[in-house]
Design a protein around this nucleic acid. Structure first.
Length: 328
DNA sequence: ACTTCTACGGTGCAGCATAG
DNA sequence: CTATGCTGCACCGTAGAAGT
């Protein structure tokens, strides 16, 4: 196999490589949308080429995907069927492809296993550069609204956090149903803002499935509980679900998933939408960005916001004066 | 013997059904 | 009425079972 991506020096082909002889075809027996047995067969080289072109495109667009996101992008293009077994097989193929230098290690990331260390600088001037980059005034101080951006899945953090950063609002990934601690922290921040006469909105993106839609209700109820507000029609706080909704499903036609019948919360959902669900991951990253950004801009007074940015730039010039110390 | 698949581990929570 | 069990949510890796 030809090595095209970054690779550790002296790293021979991985001993545990699953397909020592590069097989012609991948063949997976799986359960289809109707619950019936089905077979998926694809030439491994063809699939590899499709994956490589996807990875290349997203790298150029500046996005780093998770394995799951990449899988949904393949499903969206009808390159692979949407099934749990196929997903697992694609994941292990992605591992193999990275170990063998076919796709870049930096093209896929595991956002659930992050590591970190306190920052360091070669010189104090580096700290000032960093401070200049990070310096922000309270940009939302004179806004009428207070916003936070939340997503059901951590996998989309790489896509959505930059949007929240751009508009200087909190971003969070709930990882399914949220936790009591997270709900408390959000409510505490919002409580302060309500006292400051602001209207609070939590912009939320989640899957279109029984529990995904239930999470919107859950967040609304739990935050209102902390704030002592009526769950419905209170004027101070509400969750704004901006994705995934029926309209977006019609526009972008993401691939359907079987709704989980075991889920006791699925009954009402099946009545309303049938036996299918849709994953947020299947939308293009750029669409997700547009949706989140559009929702923020509904509530943001851009002129006021830009005023703060102007002041930050003025302050930065002052701060730069301090940065004329000795160079290394 | 080799490949492929299944099941589970970790992480932390929600919520429904049922046992006590 | 409460405690427990099982499932749900995301995400990835791996041991060992099952299949060829």
């Amino acid at each position: 196999m030809e090595i095209e991506a970054n690779f550790f020096k002296g790293h021979e082909m991985r001993k545990t490589y699953r397909s020592k002889k590069f097989r012609e075809n991948i063949c997976i027996k799986y359960t289809d949308l109707d619950g019936g047995p089905a077979v998926f067969e694809i030439n491994q080289q063809l699939l590899t080429d499709i994956i490589k072109s996807k990875v290349k495109r997203f790298t150029l667009e500046g996005y780093t995907l998770t394995g799951r996101q990449l899988f949904y992008q393949l499903v969206k293009d009808n390159a692979v069927p949407n099934a749990e077994k196929v997903y697992k097989r694609i994941l292990s193929l992605l591992v193999d492809l990275r170990y063998n230098g076919v796709i870049d290690w930096d093209a896929i990331e595991d956002r659930a296993r992050e590591s970190s260390r306190p920052s360091q600088w070669k010189h104090i001037s580096g700290l000032i550069d960093s401070a200049l980059y990070a310096y922000r005034l309270p940009r939302w101080k004179d806004q009428d609204y207070y916003l936070e951006l939340y997503c059901e899945k951590q996998a989309l953090e790489g896509i959505l956090r930059p949007v929240a950063d751009k508009y200087h609002i909190y971003y969070g990934s709930n990882k399914g149903y949220s936790s009591a601690s997270a709900m408390y922290r959000i409510a505490k921040r919002m409580d302060d803002k309500i006292y400051a006469n602001k209207i609070c909105k939590l912009i939320y993106l989640g899957d279109h499935d029984p529990s995904g839609l239930d999470m919107v209700r859950d967040i609304q109820e739990r935050i209102c509980e902390f704030l002592g507000l009526e769950v419905e029609n209170n004027e101070f706080f509400n969750v704004i679900p901006v994705a995934l909704n029926k309209e977006q499903i019609e526009i972008y036609s993401p691939p359907p998933n079987p709704a989980r019948f075991e889920d006791p919360r699925a009954k009402w959902y099946i009545k309303e939408f049938g036996n299918v669900s849709w994953e947020l991951d299947a939308l293009e990253p750029s669409v997700l960005v547009d949706v989140a950004e559009g929702a923020i801009l509904e509530y943001l007074d851009m002129d006021k916001y830009n005023g703060w940015i102007k002041r930050e730039k003025k302050d930065a010039i002052k701060l730069r004066e301090f940065n004329k110390g000795p160079e290394e």
